[in-house]
Design a protein around this nucleic acid. Structure first.
Lengths: 126, 126
DNA sequence: CCTTATGGATTACACTTGTAATACATTTAA
DNA sequence: TTAAATGTATTACAAGTGTAATCCATAAGG
């Protein structure tokens, strides 16, 4: 899988939200969170293109960038490898950590319950 | 928080399991999984000491290394920052990803249910 | 005692990453 | 029509990382 660095990820997030975008659009979209020079963002765009994470179409002189890898795929793979690395592949201990730090709210718990219900439903089908 | 690289983390895991250990013990313990030269492991030990992640006592000529940061603390912090970076701080979507890939087993679900039960119990106390 | 092996310390070196600056080719404005 | 602005491409440069090799002191073996 393509390696995307932290800084690059921020750029990907923008383009996962809205695409295609010109370099300037991306710079602007990042403006709120990041304090990056325009040149920095362009470097990141370039690197992402080199890595095959972004593609672009030409729009006159400018480029319009779009993601070549799906957000879902990327996040799944990252989760898998993170949980593998840190928790030997088990996700429950990670959630336990959140729980222990009071980082779970009612929404999270609601969603988790739903996931569990779905999972159990699934088991019955087998 | 101290930054620990991937390779360094493998060394930490060994010492979190058993401590203190000599450099050679660590090399040996890693032997199964990693195909690292002894010199490589010693470099990693050195870097971890520089970073303040490991300490050591002298045992004659050799050093006996031990962790200076707690496994729990480290993993909590890593989880927090990972989930922040990838899932905007919400843990449920991560679990959903695992669910969608059939990466949840009965054990995981059992543990999650328990966590939820504990969480709900906690709410009542407030 | 002298040589060799062994432990840690220092050095190496290419690649990635964060963070731009500079160069170069065109548009566009004056 | 010429200078300034603007887009991309190339170059920069230090810090971190993976992966060792070399150096140096000393302990241990012969």
């Amino acid at each position: 899988m393509i390696e995307i660095s932290n800084a690059e990820l921020s750029v990907m997030q923008v383009l996962w939200q809205r695409q295609p975008l010109s370099a300037n659009d991306v710079v602007e979209a990042l403006g709120n969170d990041k304090d990056w020079h325009e040149k920095t963002v362009k470097t990141l765009l370039n690197r992402l293109v080199s890595k095959g994470a972004l593609g672009f179409d030409k729009d006159g002189r400018a480029y319009l960038y779009y993601p070549l890898i799906a957000e879902q795929d990327y996040k799944l793979e990252q989760s898998r490898s993170f949980v593998e690395r840190i928790f030997a592949g088990r996700v429950a201990p990670l959630v336990a950590g959140f729980a222990s730090q009071n980082k779970l709210n009612a929404d999270d718990v609601q969603q988790l319950k739903q996931l569990i219900a779905d999972w159990e439903q699934e088991q019955h089908h087998d």
